[in-house]
Every structure is written in structure tokens, then in C-alpha cells.
Design a protein around this nucleic acid. Sequence first.
DNA 1: ACGTAATGTTAGGCTACCTAACTATGACCT
DNA 2: AGGTCATAGTTAGGTAGCCTAACATTACGT
Lengths: 145, 145
Amino acid sequence: MTSSTDPQLLALAQSFRTTLRHAVYLSRSMDGEAEITTTQMSTLSMAAEQPIRVSRVAANLGIRVPSATEQIIKLEQAGLVSRGQDPTDSRAVLVQLTERGRSAWEDASRLRNERVATLLAQLDDDDRARLAAALPVIEKLNHVV
Amino acid sequence: MTSSTDPQLLALAQSFRTTLRHAVYLSRSMDGEAEITTTQMSTLSMAAEQPIRVSRVAANLGIRVPSATEQIIKLEQAGLVSRGQDPTDSRAVLVQLTERGRSAWEDASRLRNERVATLLAQLDDDDRARLAAALPVIEKLNHVV
DNA sequence: ACGTAATGTTAGGCTACCTAACTATGACCT
DNA sequence: AGGTCATAGTTAGGTAGCCTAACATTACGT
């Protein structure tokens, strides 16, 4: 990975980074006055799919394991998740949503979705199609790593 | 903004939010071991275009003015930006890049661009086109607000 | 069975962010 | 002009998320 990179690729990379930065600002402004932080929301989203290890939460969030432990403990104290043993590995801890956690996640998720949907409603059909087409591409990038 | 939102729009909103979240994780992992933090990088990016007020930096970053002041002072102490008066309003402070700041920003930017370009190189042409087509759409969302 | 690797937790410190209170300048109004 | 209020930024002090280092526990390879 030297500096012998295709100029067109570099240009796309730069646009992508800039747009991503702007999107993050946008996302933050949407989250604004929520009672659940973005990190907690992300953690709940992961656990909503299936029980997940602390180390995986940390890896997905891009933070260290002790930091993930800290957040998860807070979520546990709030009654939103529970920590249980992994039957296949007694070192591991499986984080899963409680009933309250699931409904809290659903509520917060719905609220955010509605806000974003309101934004998207102001695009025309072509733009929405372009956006929809690009989402799977961005997802691919994560698996390339 | 009630819950009378089009289901298709809500579905797209949810996908968009999820993908955005994943992209942020990806972005963080790219920034990883950099010597300039993401916030500082963003601040430099803004000042690189044109001198910018502290309050605008704060607004763009989604943080409060005192927090922006704090970061800008650090950048100033690092010799990367200078703070000058706005000739049109002596209350305002204009943040602009120093020579060192510009080259530091260019270096850091190039490094990140190359990392992202390496990722993008692993997509096929169609996917890259889809990605490129969606970036302006996402930019539009910022101006809709 | 023993040494090493992997998974989490605890302890302590750093930094980015916040609110509240303050200074200074601009805008408006009479 | 003078008075009042709004706007731009800084300072002070507190909160929370993230980090590294050190530790306990369980798994794995030889």
C-alpha cells in the first residue's frame, strides 16, 4: 500500500470520506436530545440481532474491551441488557436484550427512523434509488477489511 | 412528524442508519493510529476551505462553542491554526490554517485517502459507480435540514 | 499436565464534552 | 447619545467515555 494509488480512486476516496463526515454530523443532529447515547444505541442494535460477546461489541464499536464492559454494565444497571455465560466458552460473556431493553431499543429506533424518513421524503425518487443502491456497496466495504 | 410515515421510506431510513453506523466503525478503524484526532481533522478540513468562525466549527461538529474553543486552542498551541479577528465583526474569531497546519492536514488527508482507496480498489466498477452516484444524494440531505 | 493464549473485570488516569457565568462587541430603539 | 438586549467567545468546574496496566479465569496446544 504505497502512494502508487490510482488518482481516480483517491478522488472517490476523498469524496467518500467527506460525505461520510457530513453524514455523521447529520446523524448526530438527529440523535440530539435522545435519552440513549449513540454508543448504547449501537450496542443494543447488535444485541437485538442475537446475543453477542463483550469483545465483539468492543470490536464493532472500535473501542477496547474494558470500555465496552463499562458501557454494558451501565446498560445492565438500566435494566436494558443482561449478561450471561456462553455455554460453549465459560470465559465469554453473552450480552442480550431484556424485555425492557428490546422495547426501549424499538422505541428509540422507531423515533430515529421516522426522523430520517422525514429527511428522505424530501428527495426525489431517483435520488432515493441511488441512495438505496449504494447502501449494499458500503456494507461490502466492511467485509473487505 | 407523526407515525404516519410511508413504510418503504421507514425501511430505507433504517437501512441507511445501519449502514451509516457501520461506515462510522469502518472510518474509525481507518483513523486508528493517526496522530490527529477525528475532530481535529474535521476542524482542519473546514479551515482548509476558508477561514471559519468558532461558532461555525462548533455547529458543524455538533458540539458546543466552549468545546470548540478548547479544541481550537489545542490546534493553535500545536501551531496548526491561528486565531484572528473578523474584520467585519470584532466579536468573531476567524480560525485559519497555518503553513504547518495545511501541510499536516494534507499529509493526514492523503494517508486516509490512500487507506480508503485501497478498500475501494477491491470493489468492481459497477459498485464504485453506485457509490459515487449516491454521495451527492447524501450531501443533499445536509442542506435539507 | 504445563505453559501460553484468549476473555473479561477492576483500578486509575486522560481528555473531550457539557453547563454556568463572565467579558466584549454589535444591533436596535427611543 | 444612551440604554437594553442579542451575539461571539472565553474561563471555570464537573461528568462521562475512552484508554493502559494489572489481574482472575478458562481454553488450547504440545
